Computed example of a mutant assay.
Amino acid sequence: MNNINVLRNTILLVEDNPVDVDLTLRAFKFNKLTNPIEVARDGHEVMSWIKNYKKGEPLPVVILLDLKLPKYSGLEVLKAIKSNTILKSIPVVVLTTSSEDDDIGEAYQLGVNSYIVKPVDFLKFIEVVRQIELYWSVLNKTSIH
């Protein structure tokens, strides 16, 4: 069953670790982020959403994707998103603890828009979230007007 409910201007956070979900949500709240945030807790949830997506439904403005997920890896999810003719336009930011060259290289090969290694320090993490929100919600242009 598809549990993901994307509304207009939603940020989709794909993260299985409850502590990291809480940390990310607190960092967004601290930065006064106004976008709704939808959380997918494993790769299967996102794959189900991809499979059941119907043209015309709202798309997330950005997907924050952890790589180390149960059921389907973040790289498998990324490949499915970037292989879909409609969903491939969604910016995907890998936000993970992995700084392995193989993960970084494969993510970019699959079409990731940005790769960020999660800082351990909360204040640094708040700054990372602020930069993500600033770039993807304010600075990035998604269409020509």
Rank of each mutant, 00 (worst) to 15 (best):
L25M: 14
L65H: 05
F122L: 15
D66K: 09
A107N: 05
W49E: 00
R8F: 11
V120L: 13
L67T: 02
D20I: 03
R8Y: 12
V19L: 13
S137E: 02
F122E: 13
V21P: 03
I144E: 13
L12K: 05
D22A: 12
E57T: 04
I144K: 12
Q131W: 06
E127S: 09
S83K: 09
E133P: 00
K88H: 15
V128M: 07
G74H: 02
T96W: 05
V6T: 08
K54D: 00
L78Y: 08
G74Y: 02
E15D: 04
V61R: 13
S83H: 03
N5T: 13
I126V: 15
R130H: 12
R130S: 09
D66I: 11
G43F: 06
R130W: 03
V19T: 14
L134D: 11
S89M: 11
S143H: 15
V6Y: 07
A27D: 04
R130L: 07
D42A: 05
K68L: 05
N2Y: 02
V46Y: 04
E76S: 12
K71Q: 14
K71A: 12
I11P: 04
L64E: 04
K88G: 05
L64M: 14
D22C: 06
R41Q: 09
K29L: 07
E76H: 09
V112G: 08
E133G: 06
L110T: 11
Y72W: 13
V39N: 03
E133K: 01
I81N: 00
N35P: 10
S89A: 11
L12G: 04
I4G: 05
K82Y: 10
I11Q: 07
L59I: 10
I126P: 00
E76T: 11
K82T: 07
I86Y: 11
E133I: 01
S83P: 04
I4K: 08
S114T: 12
S89I: 15
G105S: 14
L25Q: 10
T96K: 05
N113M: 11
I116K: 02
V94Q: 05
L69I: 02
W49G: 01
G74N: 01
H44P: 00
E15H: 03
V129W: 01
P70C: 08
K51P: 00
N52V: 00
N3A: 08
R41C: 02
D101S: 15
Y72F: 15
K141D: 03
I50C: 00
L12M: 12
G74S: 02
E38A: 15
R130A: 10
V117W: 06
V39M: 06
P18M: 13
W49R: 01
V61T: 14
N35H: 15
S137V: 05
W49V: 01
V14C: 03
A107I: 06
P18Y: 10
N2V: 13
L67H: 02
N84R: 01
K55Y: 05
L13I: 04
L134W: 09
N113K: 11
N17F: 08
K32P: 00
D121M: 14
V117I: 13
S98R: 06
K29S: 10
T142V: 14
L87M: 11
T97I: 08
I144H: 10
E38G: 05
W136T: 03
I81S: 00
K71F: 13
L69G: 01
D121Q: 14
A27C: 11
N9L: 14
V92P: 02
K29A: 12
V117A: 06
S143V: 13
L59Y: 03
K54F: 01
T97S: 10
N2G: 08
L23W: 06
A40W: 06
F122P: 13
T24F: 12
